[in-house]
Amino acid sequence: MLRIPCPFCGPRDHTEFSYEGDATVVYPALDASEEAWFEAVFLRDNPRGAHSEVWHHIQGCRSFLIVERDTLTHEITGARLAHRPTAEALK
């Protein structure tokens, strides 16, 4: 079991969350080139080590979080709100 430190709910079991993948992917503008969309939809760094990833606290506060986790050791070193304006407002 992974324990994810949700900024709102505290440390929670990962089974409360839905994994949404690589958080470094930035989706381009709707009228961006096919190449830009191809890269965003299909290509991943897939690192063996430090990974920024999105987890949706679907059975908790329902926030989208960006979690820093090591894909080899599963060590979690941080979790923050994915929605930047909300994160700023809560500071």
């Binding site: 079991m1 992974l2 990962h14 993948g21 894909t71 050791t73 599963h74």
Partner: peptide, 13 residues
């Protein structure tokens, strides 16, 4: 197990 991982160990859920 449904999250990226290179660890050859599975989770209990």
């Amino acid at each position: 197990d449904s999250y990226n991982s290179y660890a050859q160990k599975g989770n209990l859920p």
